[in-house]
């Protein structure tokens, strides 16, 4: 029984939240890795793209809510999501046209483009704050739990609860659908293949008659969609705060690099590696240890690091990978 209780505690406090968080990071890292693979720069504005997309989604959610439109047990934000994606896609396409396209034309070094993305980051950050302010916003509505702690305890008779919030379930399901759709698109469709070809070998892609501006536009649209979905899911699961989204940049980049920049499969693996490590390292293992070792009464929480240091986890994993496998766990681009 105690082993079961320990398992349930691990599930409840580590596996469930880390899976949801991992899915959010994976979606973010996919956007970063796609932009890196095709546009060949590290986009520092990605965190703020996530914030902008989420802000628009929240505004539309509020409008829908005040018009009395809901989505039954699901969060209203899911209806608003396509509008958020559309607005974000328009914004990044406009940014590409006004800002980035010039640097592609003059074939600027990637680090210059990265610097430019810092400028875009400022703009988007300011824009998001103008739109929705800097306060913490909770916008999840609909059913709270898929499995509530009370029900679980009653049904199983265990001492430990297992709760799965509906936002966590929605996160994982949505992420699975989005990732499946993305991989299908990249593997099977003509446009998707042309994007991979462009990422693989730009000159040969041009020789083969692949239209670069179409590939670039598709990449931005997909990145905007991924960023908005990741941001909205993160906001539903936790809450929305513009500055937190900026800070997500580190775990998102760490996930993309750990997996191998430019490699979509790696981005997903990286997202989950970072998320599981973060949650496992910052979880207080006291309860689990007490179940597993009878009579054990530790006087500390058995927490490896306090939650404030979760960034240290992303960073440490990043450094370890950089030291031992600089192209990432899955082979990414090395140039």
């Amino acid at each position: 029984m105690d082993i079961l209780n320990a398992l349930v505690a691990i599930l409840n406090y580590v596996v469930v939240p880390a899976t949801a968080y991992g899915a959010q990071l994976a979606l973010g890292a996919l956007g970063v890795t796609l932009i890196y693979g095709i546009l060949r720069f590290s986009n520092f504005a990605h965190g703020d793209t996530m914030a902008f997309g989420t802000a628009i989604t929240i505004l539309i959610t509020w409008a829908l809510q005040s018009a009395g439109i809901g989505f039954g047990p699901l969060p209203t934000a899911l209806i608003a999501l396509p509008f958020g994606i559309a607005a974000t896609a328009l914004l990044v396409l406009g940014t590409d046209k006004i800002v980035y396209s010039y640097y592609r034309k003059v074939r600027a070094a990637p680090v210059v483009l990265t610097m430019v993305s810092v400028g875009v980051m400022f703009l988007m950050n300011g824009l998001t704050r103008l739109l929705i302010g800097v306060d913490e916003i909770k916008f999840a509505d609909g059913a709270r739990f898929l499995i509530s702690a009370q029900e679980f305890k009653k049904a199983t008779g265990l001492a430990e609860p297992l709760a799965i919030r509906s936002t966590q379930a929605i996160t994982v399901i949505t992420a699975a659908i989005v990732v499946a759709a993305l991989f299908w698109f990249l593997a099977k469709t003509r446009t998707g293949k042309s994007m991979r070809a462009f990422s693989d070998n730009e000159d040969l892609a041009l020789l083969s008659g692949i239209n670069p501006s179409r590939v670039v536009a598709m990449t931005w649209i997909i990145a905007a969609a991924l960023a908005t979905i990741a941001g909205t899911l993160y906001g539903l699961d936790k809450s929305f705060k513009a500055f937190n989204y900026f800070q997500l940049l580190l775990p998102v980049f760490a996930a993309a690099i750990v997996g191998g920049l430019g490699n979509p499969l790696g981005a997903i693996a990286g997202g989950f590696i970072i998320a599981y490590s973060e949650v496992a390292v910052t979880y207080a293992w006291k309860k689990v240890a007490m179940y597993l070792i009878p009579g054990f009464q530790p006087d500390s929480l058995l927490q490896l690091l306090s939650t404030e240091y979760k960034f240290a986890v992303s960073f440490t994993i990043l450094i370890i990978v950089l030291l031992f496998k600089p192209t990432g766990l899955f082979k990414g681009k090395s140039v």
Binding site: K193, L204, L207
Partner: peptide
Amino acid sequence: GFVPQVNNVFPTMSVEENLEMGAFI
């Protein structure tokens, strides 16, 4: 039709996909 000296394939794409990309136009 032009075959460059180096970097003349799409390395992470299958042989068949390489041919498909050749026929892109």
